[in-house]
């Protein structure tokens, strides 16, 4: 039990020992060990990104199938679980079309950058006991900052495509990302106020000592989830893609693997949002019986399934209502929530 719980920590320890031994053997400076470890952490995060994208793409399609009374993908691999790999191979083999009038370097760069923000965010994500690549004291602020970057590649994509649908989508991304950043930050701030720390592991420790913060901050939890949907451009806030209005919005001019990169990055962004919700509100990786990292994956799975469920249930909101809802409902609500939380914390602590 203890072994499984610490399996990844032990692997990391083993790697560090091997590197230290090599560095000692070759009489190299010690700082190389740290650099090598960064590479190991980075590799681990890439693997997490790829695996979660592979899994959640097919899970979304299956869940959508169940919601829509159809089987969903069920051909490739056991019960269709390898479908994403098949899709990825198909997309790689497709012709990579770049429109004539496109800003070619940015068009390419946007697809490449799409994976950067979620990977940066996962660096500070506590996956389990001692399983935080970057245990920052300002972890919450860091994750908020880098997840905001997620809209940048999408903006680049829309801008560089030289397509009116894409441009409209890009403008919607900016609108939405900037607006929903505010209620999201306020929701997270309420949590920080209660827990008294910006450190993600500290917030988890607080929840282990007291109760899950979802019980203390239910309104903040709901607002956080809504803002997270908007930040990830997920339905009902999928206006940048807005399939029935803007054909494919910002991704209209993307094809082949470039499109696939955006598609997969969307799931990584969602995974980050779900992971942050788990950490902030659902007690993070803590839980009885099972290893910590299993609990983390289970809790994120529940939140991700919720995101998917919402997507296949609700119609799309219109662009002006998206902003109105944010500034006239969510922001005042969260300000009141923050005020009440602040007063109560001040009285009690």
């Amino acid at each position: 039990m203890e072994f499984i719980n610490n399996i990844f920590v032990n692997i990391a320890g083993l790697c560090r020992a091997v590197f230290a031994w090599l560095v000692g053997l070759l009489h190299l400076p010690d700082v190389l060990v740290d650099i090598a470890m960064v590479a190991v952490y980075w590799l681990a995060i890439v693997v997490v990104c790829v695996l979660c994208a592979l899994f959640y793409v097919v899970w979304e399609r299956k869940l959508a199938g169940y919601i829509q009374r159809r089987p969903g993908p069920n051909r490739l691999g056991p019960n269709g679980w390898l479908q994403t790999i098949g899709d990825a191979i198909k997309l790689v083999m497709k012709e990579d079309i770049v429109p004539d009038g496109a800003d070619k370097p940015i068009h390419l760069l946007a697809a490449l950058l799409a994976f950067v923000p979620p990977m940066l965010a996962l660096a500070a994500m506590p996956f389990g006991e001692g399983m935080t690549a970057l245990d920052l004291d300002l972890g919450v602020v860091y994750i908020m900052a880098v997840t905001t970057l997620a809209s940048l590649p999408v903006l680049c994509a829309g801008y560089a495509s030289n397509n009116k649908y894409a441009m409209m989508g890009a403008l919607r991304v900016v609108n939405q990302a900037i607006s929903y950043e505010v209620p999201q930050a306020l929701a997270i701030l309420s949590v920080v106020l209660v827990a008294g720390t910006f450190n993600l592991n500290g917030i988890i420790d607080f929840q282990t000592g007291h109760v899950w913060l979802i019980l203390l901050q239910p309104v903040a939890f709901v607002v956080y989830l809504i803002s997270a949907l908007a930040e990830c451009n997920r339905a009902p806030f999928d206006l940048p893609e807005g399939e029935s209005e803007l054909t494919a919005g910002v991704f209209t001019e993307y094809s082949g693997m470039r499109y696939a990169l955006f598609y997969l990055a969307e799931y990584c962004n969602m995974f980050v949002a779900a992971g942050l919700a788990t950490t902030l509100f659902l007690g993070g990786f803590t839980g009885p019986f099972l290893p910590g990292w299993v609990w983390f994956l289970l809790k994120t799975f529940v939140i991700m399934s919720l995101f998917i469920w919402v997507r296949w249930t609700l119609p799309r909101i219109r662009a002006d209502y998206v902003l109105r809802f944010c500034w006239k409902v969510l922001v005042p609500l969260m300000l009141v929530n923050l005020l009440v939380t602040g007063v109560i914390v001040y009285i009690l602590v």
Binding site: A64, R69, P236, E243, S244, P315
Partner: peptide, 16 residues
């Protein structure tokens, strides 16, 4: 109609 408003699942039930 429901699908064009963004709720894709809405199309499957009437089609049944």
């Amino acid at each position: 109609y429901i699908m064009d408003l963004g709720a894709v699942s809405g199309v499957f039930y009437p089609f049944q």
